[in-house]
Amino acid sequence: MTTPSRRRLMRDFKKLQEDPPAGVSGAPTQDNILTWEAIIFGPQETPFEDGTFKLSLEFTEEYPNKPPTVKFISRMFHPNVYADGSICLDILQNRWSPTYDVAAILTSIQSLLDEPNPNSPANSLAAQLYQENRREYEKRVYQIVEQSWMNFGENEGDMEPKEGEEQGAGDEPAAPSGSN
């Protein structure tokens, strides 16, 4: 079944493969072109350097007229990222334009990492440390950079996330509820 949004997503995917922007990659999941997984590498010479952060992108049939829902799957410590991984970024809300594509979204999030907007904090601790105690902030960031390598060993070098990995990520939240 092809609809305008699916056609457009195929083009976005093709563009991402033919002309990949530095430090980001993404692909639709095998069974649903409306659900994507992506990886953003922490930009060099920033506290996020060497981090490999996984994200999910959920599109609707209204794409590109409406933005997708983008979330970090990897743990993140950043003034504009909520505890559940949701991102507070203007182009994903009121500044959205249908001319943005997946590559533009991913590169925008990548540059957000080192250019947070402490005025609209989604994580108040991160915002406070960023402004008042940069050293401690960078320490916390380094912790999540190290964590981002954890579930990555078996897939190293393989840019496209596999199903098994998604499963692995899905298991994590289930563990504490089992101990109850």
């Binding site: 007229n65 001319t99 943005y100 533009a104």
Partner: peptide, 23 residues
């Protein structure tokens, strides 16, 4: 595409000052 874009701006964002479709 223009029509869809403008309709979203009018009915969802409720604004009468609309910018060009290009980001």
């Amino acid at each position: 595409c223009w029509r869809r874009y403008l309709q979203t701006k009018i009915t969802v964002d409720n604004t009468s000052e609309i910018e060009c479709i290009m980001n």
